[in-house]
Design a protein around this nucleic acid. Structure first.
Lengths: 331, 331
DNA sequence: CGCGTTTATGACATCGTTATCAGAAAGTGG
DNA sequence: CCACTTTCTGATAACGATGTCATAAACGCG
């Protein structure tokens, strides 16, 4: 900046004024400074500016997701980015990989870089460590999972109602023996989805069969095994409600291997890539990661703009997409 | 930092020494400072430190990709992140969306934040605007596409050989009328893949039929139309080589709608999600985005560590994954 | 014990920018 | 023409950290 000032024959403060488009600079001076800046390829150093600037904004956001390579997270990321770019805010994205250690490390890395706000998918038992930041007024929005030990804005898929809806869809098709395949019991979303499944059964007066409820399926292969076992039962389920993405894929593989994919109905929670090109095409309760990201970003910026109402939850509705596998009727 | 120093009863410089684990601090002092830092929840401001620090590193990288929501880009991103995190480097990711305006804006945003290096998938006609940065020694690695008007490290999929390999695979199955479906002619990768296709035909002594070469397919729907037209020809192709992801999906949809998916062979360039669960399962020439990201990141860090050999290209090989659709023989 | 070396510490300048303030120049109204 | 406001400009301090340098205490060794 000094160099630009010297070249333009003005003081540094005047250059600063031109760069920040402040008032009270003559047209002639603006032109001279712009020319000098152009000539020297000058790019202001935002970080240095933020050091002194009154609002201390870094125009930077931290985003912590499961994995940037996971389609759900990637869609959230994209929506956040689209909102951020309009305000010239850059986004640090970091992957969590269900590793509590990495959660802490990433959040610390964000804080050391003085991000203006945080959007977090968390895994740790407690997020109380963020208390001081919240008290200091840093906007923090949790996404997909509720924080523990902390009250903060949270954007959630309507897991309960979505799971209930998917289950009701199978019930409406006439199924009574509907299996549930779920993720680790410790995950908030997994618990909610299971609750939705049970609620829907109860409302219809169907007693849940514990042998049909299988949880703690972490990956495809485990889901495959689970389905194999279900089909080997004396009175196997006529339908499956799969409460997560990868589990749904595992179920598809197993059903197909057993030649049961045209006979046993399947509804999955969370959309599956290429679902409409599979046969049968997969009926799902789709989440809306794009909306989730957009709402989270909107909230962050509202807070930055001074909104101070108490923290609240934002519930994003799901959408039932009928494609075929969920419309199979019991024999 | 001042506060920590006061609380610990030492000078700021001593706190700085403790934080940066410099030599010549007594164990007792270290303990006192650590305790004070803990108590005040002190997080050093990296940006402020970098202002004065000799190497002027911000421990920050800029990554510009097609879209963070696109699986290929997301895999590259993930690989870069994994390499970066080991060095406590944070990554700014930005989506390009084939918008030259956005390319410039994002790169400027990165530069204003003084990133240590750039990893770029570019779209602009020329990247000469990065000349000054390169000369100043900022590491810049281009990914997936060669830069124009600039010499810099570049990581590329072996598009030419990959496309040739896919085409040879179809030739080996006995096909002679092999259609080519390609992306916009202006894209570097599209050109290379077409060249690979033509080379393979030539080597086998098959004269390319211009009616079977269709380019400028930007999206699925266009690919679908193109396949419909191909199948309507007097002597339609017995096989299709699709040079890009979305085009392959469009082709699958069209082949299926025409009831031709079991008859007309298909090999796609770039893997397709769930490809093995489709029927027929899709044979592809897979790229290795993870390797691409890892190599790009490695190169950035090598350069930051002082490596100064001339810029070079890194060619990442492809892998032919036979799944069924590419092994269909001509009637 | 004396002298050189190593260890330990803090004062101060500095990085690139913006905030504050002072002051000059130009315009406005009576 | 004078007082008063508005416009325009730059000197200087400050932001939160590190680099440099000076100084003092502790240590090692003949």
């Amino acid at each position: 900046m000094k160099n630009v000032a010297d070249l333009a024959g003005v003081g540094v403060k005047t250059v600063s004024r031109v760069i920040n488009q402040e008032r009270y600079v003559s047209a002639d001076t603006i032109a001279r400074v712009m020319r000098a800046a152009e000539q020297l390829q000058y790019q202001p150093d935002v970080q240095a500016g933020n050091l002194r600037r009154a609002d201390r904004r870094t125009d930077t956001l931290g985003l912590l997701v499961g994995s940037v390579a996971n389609p759900f997270s990637a869609a959230v990321h994209r929506a956040v980015e689209d909102a951020a770019i309009q305000r010239h805010v850059a986004v640090f994205a970091s992957s969590l990989d269900d590793d509590p250690e990495r959660e802490r490390a990433s959040v610390e890395a964000f804080l050391r870089r003085r991000v203006d706000g945080l959007i977090l998918t968390t895994i740790q038992r407690s997020q109380a460590y963020l208390g001081p930041q919240l008290e200091q007024g840093m906007p923090v929005v949790f996404v997909d999972r509720k924080p523990n030990g902390l009250i903060a804005d949270t954007v959630l898929t309507d897991n309960l109602e979505g799971a209930a809806r998917g289950t009701r869809h199978l019930l409406a098709a006439g199924h009574r023996r509907i299996a549930f395949l779920g993720d680790s019991e410790e995950i908030y979303t997994a618990k909610e989805r299971k609750r939705g499944y049970l609620d829907a059964l109860r409302l219809e007066g169907v007693a849940p069969d514990p042998r049909l409820v299988i949880e703690n399926l972490g990956e495809e292969a485990q889901a495959e095994l689970a389905v194999n076992e279900l089909l080997a039962l004396d009175d196997p389920p006529t339908a499956i409600f799969s409460a997560q993405n990868l589990i749904t894929i595992g179920a598809i593989i197993a059903l197909r291997a057993q030649g049961a994919s045209e006979r046993v109905a399947l509804v999955g929670f969370d959309d599956v890539p290429m679902a409409s090109l599979l046969s049968p095409a997969v009926t799902v309760v789709a989440q809306d990661p794009s909306a989730i990201g957009a709402i989270a970003a909107r909230r962050i910026f509202e807070r930055l703009d001074g909104e101070s109402e108490p923290a609240r939850d934002f519930i994003v509705p799901t959408r039932l997409i009928k494609r075929g596998s969920g419309e199979i009727r019991p024999a």
